[in-house]
């Protein structure tokens, strides 16, 4: 940068022009994608903020301009509605229950399949079926299995387990939420299983051997040797799953339609939009959801992304 620059200048200029070329090429390659993503995601999200301050019905959408009259009505209406808070409570129970359950089951599965045995590859592949299969198909199969008239679960429950009558798993208040959470656990434990299995493979064998030599029992080895190694991946899974479950729509909508005490926030937003044609109300609720989500995301970024970005 100083006295010796006379000597180094030509070289630096060449490097600068290479950097300039890299900059230009990079922008050319990624620019169109950024434009599309901004146009289809970022702008609509910003517009969602605008919408939430307007009183709009679906019918008016075609005629109204982008900036109509602004009002806080949507928020006061949403926040004053006891149903909204009830729905938020349901959402939290659902998200936390689904997250904890799927991680616990995934952990159990990963530990059970840790040691090699004949046919492990097939079992492992089967384990992922609930996660890769289309949600509409598996939700429909669950509905059929739980059907109170001819579903296997009810028929066999009455035959073998001596239930007094069919249980209305999807249409009755306490059961429906439990069923929906069970579905969530079933569908996403493979995801936790994959992550935890990958992490288990990276655990160095010698610490466990040392513990074995010291006479540690399997549960002790798990609690004092394995679990600390898995803490990070479990924390990561918790944040990821909480974010996803908190805004889950498909699974609940398909199983119960949001009835019988399963009115989670995302289904409520959908109902506002298509059932009551209240765009402003839906947008305001989505904004409240997004605010909560941004909170989660900040936690995620603070604890997990910083390292990754610095490393790259």
């Amino acid at each position: 940068m100083s006295a010796s620059s006379a000597l180094t200048r030509p070289r630096r200029r060449r490097r600068n022009s290479a950097a300039a070329r890299a900059n230009r090429d990079g922008l050319l390659m990624v620019g169109p994608t950024v434009v599309i993503v901004v146009a289809v995601v970022v702008l609509p999200v910003l517009w969602n903020v605008v919408l939430s301050f307007q009183s709009l019905s679906l019918v008016q959408i075609h005629t109204s301009g982008i900036f109509g009259e602004f009002t806080l009505d949507n928020f006061t209406k949403v926040l004053a509605d006891p149903d909204f808070w009830a729905s938020l409570r349901t959402t939290v129970i659902y998200a936390v229950g689904g997250t904890a359950g799927s991680i616990a089951l995934g952990l159990v599965a990963a530990l059970a399949l840790r040691r090699r045995f004949p046919g492990r590859g097939v079992v492992r592949a089967a384990m992922l079926l609930p996660y890769v299969a289309p949600v509409v198909a598996v939700a429909f199969v669950w509905q059929m299995m739980l059907n109170s008239q001819f579903g296997v679960v009810n028929i066999w429950g009455q035959k073998l387990l001596g239930w007094n009558g069919p249980v209305d798993f999807l249409g009755q208040a306490p059961y429906a939420l439990v069923t929906v959470i069970a579905f969530e656990i079933w569908r996403y434990f493979p995801f936790a299983f994959l992550f935890i299995t990958a992490r288990l493979q990276a655990v160095p064998g010698d610490i466990e051997e040392a513990a074995l030599v010291d006479g540690a029992t399997p549960t002790q080895r798990f609690a004092y040797v394995l679990l600390p190694q898995l803490a990070n991946v479990i924390a990561l899974l918790s944040v990821l799953r909480l974010i996803m479950n908190f805004n889950k729509f498909d699974d609940v909508y398909l199983l119960t339609g949001g009835g019988a005490g399963t009115d989670v926030a995302a289904v409520r937003v959908y109902d506002y939009l298509t059932g009551q044609f209240d765009v402003g109300g839906a947008a305001a609720q989505a904004l409240v959801l997004a605010a909560i989500l941004v909170g989660f995301l900040l936690i995620y970024v603070k604890f997990f992304v910083r390292k990754e970005v610095d490393a790259s």
Partner: peptide, 21 residues
């Protein structure tokens, strides 16, 4: 970071503005 954020963003929050747009 923009891509990561979009990727983590849940569909239901995008659904309303996209539907309207």
């Amino acid at each position: 970071a923009l891509f990561l954020a979009v990727y983590m963003f849940p569909a239901i929050v995008l659904a309303i503005p996209l539907f309207v747009a």
